[in-house]
Design a protein around this nucleic acid. Structure first.
Lengths: 195, 195, 195, 195
DNA sequence: CATGAATGAGAGTTCATTCAT
DNA sequence: GATGAATGAACTCTCATTCAT
């Protein structure tokens, strides 16, 4: 596979991403992608064999970029509290973004493909986020920023609330105020002693 | 439309429910329902005109039954704490039920049909649950069972966690232990002073 | 078949007529008629067995009424020229009536059912009209109103022009002015010596 | 779309033409054409999207060929009278052709699709024919072949008679003798002074 | 007579997938 | 590698027609 091939592969994935963002996962057909990419029907099959495969590759791309983005924006001398707030604010942005988000498509994909734990990227991300938050809380407790008796439980709680907000954003709709209120509630709980 | 028609209508809805439970919403075709009901192609169209319509009617049925079930199981002399625990345990049961749950289908339906607030049954249910929990917490605080400075915020927090658990159950999978742990975490937070 | 049956039969035909006027012949289904009549599906089949049969009965009704109407409007002391003009004016009215005309449906019916001459109501009407016009021209020539060397040929010519106008009205559209011009042309030709 | 595609397109149109000739317009389904062409269901949709579209393209083809045919058969030194007779004889041939004529289908198409004047091919053809005949009569008058005080009116009269004959041929049936008689009547009227 | 539920054939249309070029 | 024509399965929806009540 030459350089040109790699470029084309990437081009297809980026274009397909837009299609998934717009239509979710299930509704997208190979034809949709072919048309969006303006390539030939057979051409697409040279690179990918199904929408499912394409979607998984799109998610892989997505994850990498997101990780890069987040770690880039952390300053060297940031406190635990700063970083947690930064993280929550990122999540809020993601939540409220109506366009340009794969959220719905990802849910649809996992509805259809109940992958075993090992391969379940979503689970890995969830667990890793919990661990990071737990670490931040721990650090915050140590530095006196936070008060928390069960950092692990609290981290999980935060993540489930975020998941709850995420799915609600896609189904019943959420306003920026609602998200702010929830985030504030979570944060206050940690800083409870400062009241 | 005689008695028989009504019976058949109900029969179709009940059968269709099974199909939605098994396949979600989007994947279900009129043909699937026709075959599950063992009626003729045209016959189904006498009663319903689309999978979407059928699904909405199924949800309507579902909601009524669920409400009845829950209110039936509350004892006269139950305390706020009892009722809240009962509610959380109900949610747990629902969460862990892999089979016989419409959850996935409902999400899929609302992905596709971003109904305005007024008609959004899901939103109504969410809001009503928040109000009930808020009431329970308030009652619990008054009776000294609970300690909580922000019953409304806490109620919302509980509901978002439950939503988070629900979506996670459908995507990354949850174990009974995980659910117990979360529920316990929520409950403990309310009874914090008793520690 | 009792009195009531006859009434219902008539009611169905009158209602069906409206449907044919609106939709032509081919497009009309038994369902359309059932719905327009607001009777039961099976009920219609007790009286008629196909749209084709219904349409033929509608045409039969139509013909009778038309004949009555025309002969009623002829005054006792009318001249040949008067009657011919009256006839042509009737045709004009019919031509320009967009709504409430079976013309299109009739054409469609005869396209599909190339009936043998004997049963072809349309042919009988055409021939009878030619004979009447021929008679009128003959009478007009005798009374000195018209000049015509070939009354039969002229009568046929008039009828073909009218047929031509009729079909054009249904396909390319005609204006009142166009019809007037043609009728005047036909009439002038008969009165040619008077110029 | 390569050369082969163009060939296939043409092949489909030619085959579809036969189907329209045989069944008219309304009765023809995509399935009919698919079967006549012996291609796959989906294959036809690659080229055309409805019977209506196919029919319009068939008519376009038809018109071009007819124009070519007629203009080819006019000799250089023909008189107005010659050309008019040739034209009328062409019309007669067309009229009497039971098989291999789109007439019925065209009428059905225009019944269903009352196109605005601008797009109405039928109207354009009619008007253009009137103008040509008018020109021929004018030329004939000048050369002394014809006598006619109102060439435009006469041309229209001729065209309406031809339309009348055409529709009668499809509905009540016409014999060669009838057509001859009508054509002769029209022609005689022009040469009236020679009698 | 009358009803209207039920059936099943058939039309339209869309796509995943293949394959000759 | 790349194309895009071709296939055929699958789905939606509509009706003519029947038949138990």
């Amino acid at each position: 596979m030459g350089e040109k091939s790699i470029q084309k592969r990437k081009y297809i994935l980026e274009t397909a991403r837009k299609v998934f963002v717009e239509k979710g996962f299930k509704k997208v057909t190979m034809k949709d992608i072919v048309e969006a990419c303006d390539i030939s029907r057979g051409g697409l099959y040279l690179y990918f064999e199904s929408t499912s495969q394409i979607f998984q590759e799109v998610m892989k791309m997505e994850t990498q970029e997101a990780d890069d983005l987040f770690s880039d924006s952390i300053k060297e001398d940031a406190t635990a509290s700063d970083i947690l707030l930064l993280f929550l604010r990122e999540q809020k942005k993601e939540l409220l973004r109506k366009k340009d988000t794969l959220t719905q498509a990802i849910y649809e994909f996992y509805f259809e493909n109940q992958l075993p734990k090992k391969e379940n990227r979503l689970k890995k991300q969830f667990d890793s986020a919990v661990r990071i938050i737990e670490g931040l809380i721990g650090a915050g407790v140590e530095s006196g920023e936070f008060y928390c008796e069960d950092p692990a439980g609290c981290a999980r709680n935060i993540m489930f609330v975020l998941e709850g907000l995420k799915i609600c954003a896609q189904t019943i709709g959420v306003t920026p105020e609602m998200v702010d209120r929830e985030i504030l509630y979570l944060f206050k709980n940690l800083c409870v002693e400062e009241e």
